[in-house]
Design a protein around this nucleic acid. Sequence first.
RNA 1: GCCGAGAUAGCUCAGUAGGUAGAGCGGGGGCCUGAAAAGCCCUGUGUCAGCAGUUCAAUUCUGUUUCUCGGCA
Length: 326
Amino acid sequence: MLRAADQPLPVLCLAGPTGSGKTELALQLSRRLGCEVINTDSRQVYADFPIICAQPRPEELSQCPHHLYGKLKIEEKISAGQWCSMAEDCIREVLRRGHVPLLVGGTGMYFHTLLHGMAPIPAIDPRLRAQLEARVESEGPEKLHAELGAIDPDYAIRIHPHDRQRIVRALEVAAQTGHTLSWWHAQKSLQSPRAQGPLFVFQAPMTWLEPRLKRRIDQMLEMGALEEAQKAYTLCADGEAPGWSAIGCAELLAFLQGRLSFENCLALWYQNTRAYAKRQNTWFRGRKEAIFFPAEASDQFLSQAEDAWQNLCAQSLGNASGGRHA
RNA sequence: GCCGAGAUAGCUCAGUAGGUAGAGCGGGGGCCUGAAAAGCCCUGUGUCAGCAGUUCAAUUCUGUUUCUCGGCA
């Protein structure tokens, strides 16, 4: 091997808002380059919602190897860190087989962890988090935000006093590790990127996306989304479980529990999907490293991705394994 | 037909002891370092149903018309 073990691994990344056609494009690229697709979506890792979370369908999965899809039970938690190390292992194996690791999904932060690295913060004791969450509940977020201000003013100033999630995160890290989040984040030498490669982002304006999102919900229902939710409900009736938090799942659960009419369930489902797509667009728009390409120009993407991979191989792998010659 | 209750932001509604109005949701914009399909922030002028009257001043009071929802016929 020419490269040290911690050298960033060469990858191709395909991101974009939900429903923009990433799955299909990934398969097209795979036909050209010989890819293995690695899921970069925080909800498609769950096993019991393949339809509602828009995992690739069986006939799509069979076209090339796919990884990290449908792995977790509804009660199991995933985090960006866990995903990142699973993805890293996966990428290594794909490269070893001489294939192209193609990361496909819509979870911006997951791409970020892989391409920019993460602070090696140890796992936090869930009881500690539960305690802090209870305190936020009873004492109010402002109080804990003020406490955070006393120990980690740099981070406190960056987050809003109402941002319970981040306040709890910062406090639990400080309490358990003895170092503040700011300190961890400043340790740049400890968080080198796990992978390197172009981040292609499917640019999909909302006016183009809206009808597709609407249609897709109907298609999901035709494919058995409701039955999928019913079945999942028998496996796990706890609506608070991590797997239920996906858009579509939460709304169908509310319907199954009689908290929503079917009509309102569908309306909410669409509304939340749309809002999510907007948030994704906002996230990706802000990425400096992103290479955008418009919805119609899939051939443009395919040739760009192909070129990018050749360059990556030349520059980062030399004649080591992992390259594929055109 | 009669009797009640309504008519205020895209939706659901609050309010003004008369000085032209505000919440939630939606919509729009943004943030994002281990829950990220999560979490969080910013953003509200609308003939206050129409017409007439009282008044310096009416969305607010009075009359009337229209419409909606109940009840009685």
